[in-house]
Amino acid sequence: MEIIKLHDDNKRKYIDLLLLADEQESMIDKYLEHGEMFVLNENGVKAECVVTNEADGIYELKNIAVMPDSQRKGYGKRLIDYVFSHYADCNTLFVGTGDVPSTLGFYHKCGFTESHRIKNFFTDNYDHLIFEDGKQLVDMVYLKRER
């Protein structure tokens, strides 16, 4: 297994994988340029994530996606653990997601706890309704992992 930090000119080649986690390209464009992208490769790309530096000691996981045929095999957790250790100055790693039990359960297993919510984030910022596991996403749930 190898985790590689990509150079800016290579990030867009993973747009299909990015769209698995954030299905509106204009929203991805808001963080992709200033975020750092990591790709987990194990006999082919299995997962990616984009991380932004939000403030001194505070980072945000803006996008994390695992190839559909590689999900539930630990790749997402490995990538999160790598990122958390990669940024030695990271005291808090935030992630925002929809209010879906399976997704929240994944982040809890990765050491995150609920931080706060942004009401109507998905309905106010996306040009279409978004559904995950049959549930419409409305509020953004922010979770945090602290060192």
Rank of each mutant, 00 (worst) to 15 (best):
K30F: 11
K30D: 15
Y31H: 10
E33G: 14
H34W: 14
G35A: 08
E36C: 10
E36K: 14
F38E: 07
V39D: 05
V39S: 10
L40D: 02
E42D: 14
A47Q: 02
E48H: 10
E48V: 14
C49N: 07
C49E: 03
T52V: 12
T52R: 12
N53V: 12
E54D: 13
E54R: 12
G57S: 05
I58E: 10
I58H: 08
Y59H: 03
A65G: 03
P68H: 05
D69S: 13
D69R: 10
S70W: 00
R72Q: 11
R72K: 14
K73A: 00
K73I: 00
K73L: 02
K73N: 03
L79Q: 05
L79M: 08
I80W: 03
I80D: 01
V83T: 08
H86V: 07
H86K: 15
D89E: 11
C90M: 15
L93R: 08
L93I: 07
F94K: 14
V95A: 10
V95P: 05
V95Q: 06
G96R: 06
T97K: 05
T97L: 10
V100S: 06
P101Y: 04
S102L: 11
S102T: 14
L104E: 08
G105W: 05
G105Q: 11
F106D: 01
F106Y: 09
Y107S: 01
K109G: 08
C110G: 03
